[in-house]
Design a protein around this nucleic acid. Sequence first.
DNA 1: GAGCTTATTGCAACCTTGTGGCGTTAATGA
DNA 2: TCATTAACGCCACAAGGTTGCAATAAGCTC
Lengths: 153, 153
Amino acid sequence: MKASPNATAPASFPAIESTIRATGARVTTSRVRVYALLQNAQGPLCHREIEQRLSGEALPAMDRVTLYRVLDWLAQAGLAHKAADTRGVFRFSAATSDGEHLRHMHFRCTACGGVFCLEMSQPSLPELPQGFRLASAEFDIRGVCPDCAGKRP
Amino acid sequence: MKASPNATAPASFPAIESTIRATGARVTTSRVRVYALLQNAQGPLCHREIEQRLSGEALPAMDRVTLYRVLDWLAQAGLAHKAADTRGVFRFSAATSDGEHLRHMHFRCTACGGVFCLEMSQPSLPELPQGFRLASAEFDIRGVCPDCAGKRP
DNA sequence: GAGCTTATTGCAACCTTGTGGCGTTAATGA
DNA sequence: TCATTAACGCCACAAGGTTGCAATAAGCTC
């Protein structure tokens, strides 16, 4: 299992543009900005966090609703994952290239509030009872991250 | 693994009252009604669903805010579990007597919208990377339940 | 490059979920 | 029965998220 929080290599803008273009939709600055931000993020971000980071980018600010729509579009296009956190707020993260998110897991530190994406190397999905068909699984795990655990042993 | 959706025996009102009294707080009709409803529910319910069911009880309607407070009190008292569902809405379920919820799992049917509580007989919790300390884990699993799978094979 | 089509954007208003303040009610103990 | 005060009901409000619609700009054709 890897513990690196979304340690994807910083995607270049041309690569991001071609990824967006490949979906058949238009390549807009809003989509490129948000998708690039998610690619380089250290874990899932909520709407507010994304808005704050975008406002620090010296580019003109993006409308609140536009950001909601871009995020939903990214999720619908399969380029991002959308999941509600423990407080009921949606968080978005760039989708990994392996397509399905079945082996994905989120660890939320109760001390610092950080969110870590953990990839499970071995499929340890629970076996469902007779008749249940699995479509997707999300693991929301809470505890203390190594940094915070080190500060207060 | 059991698949029975919250198949706890319907708790009697005296039992519910004594459970509430044991927490040291006051026994009010609001708390008894909501706690009894959760005990007999077929899975986690959101605020709106609880409000609707209460309004069909022929007893005087409960205030919206009071219901929020009762639910939060039940969760804080350890009598109920509070968790945000995939849409970001908090859902409440009566706490099982085994205390911890570490082995608990929710299955959400994408066809009928139903929520099933699954108890895992064997602890199949994922092994966390070095340094991470587990506090609680929630599994949100989506797919098709046996009923809906049978209708459309 | 100019012009056209229409997918996106920006703006305003609105909805839903959830919370805080405060006077009133009722559960408990004396 | 009475006093105390935890809960309740009502009001207003905050945050997150959605809908409608006119204005803009991405991509296509010429």
